Simulated assay, not measured.
Amino acid sequence: MGLLKFLFIAITVLWLIRMVARLLFPWAMRRMAEKVMGNAQRQYQYRNNPYNTNANGGNFQQPRQPEGEVRIDYMPPQNKPKRGAKSAGEFVEFEEIKSSAK
């Protein structure tokens, strides 16, 4: 009797979860799609607006670069070459000779 009761409750709970998921999943996906579309639209408007406002509320015109031209704002400092094998001294090649002692 206990096994039948457990199976009935388990099947009922799984069925309810399935019904709730069928209702909530489309709503959640629609909400997520609207959010992504809103972000994309804001980015498009920001990039195509020639007069973007800065944090102080003033307007400034963002200079446009010709297509295909690259501008580098920051270059990290060059590391000094490491002193390794070149300054470690002279290396001698050798062969290992195995002696057969009886």
Rank of each mutant, 00 (worst) to 15 (best):
A88L: 08
E90C: 02
S100W: 00
L24T: 12
A10G: 02
E93M: 12
G84L: 06
M19S: 12
R83V: 04
L24I: 10
G2F: 06
V70G: 00
L23W: 11
A101H: 05
V13W: 00
E90N: 10
M37Y: 04
Q43H: 14
D73G: 03
L24K: 10
N79T: 06
N39A: 12
Y74M: 02
E95L: 08
A10E: 10
Q65H: 08
E69C: 05
Q65E: 09
R64L: 13
M1F: 10
K98S: 09
E67R: 02
I9S: 07
M32K: 11
Q61T: 11
E34Q: 11
R71D: 05
I72A: 04
A85Y: 04
E90F: 05
Y46L: 15
S100K: 09
E67V: 01
P77M: 05
E96W: 06
L3R: 09
L23Y: 08
R30S: 14
G57L: 00
L14P: 01
N49D: 15
E90Y: 07
G68V: 01
S87K: 02
L3G: 06
Y44D: 06
L3P: 03
G58K: 12
F94C: 13
P76L: 00
L7Q: 10
Y44K: 07
E34D: 13
P66C: 00
K80S: 07
Y44N: 03
I11M: 11
A85S: 10
A10S: 14
M37H: 08
L23N: 08
F8K: 13
T12S: 15
R71T: 07
G57T: 04
E93R: 11
G68K: 02
P77Y: 02
K35H: 11
E34G: 15
M19A: 15
G84M: 06
L7Y: 07
L23R: 14
N52Q: 15
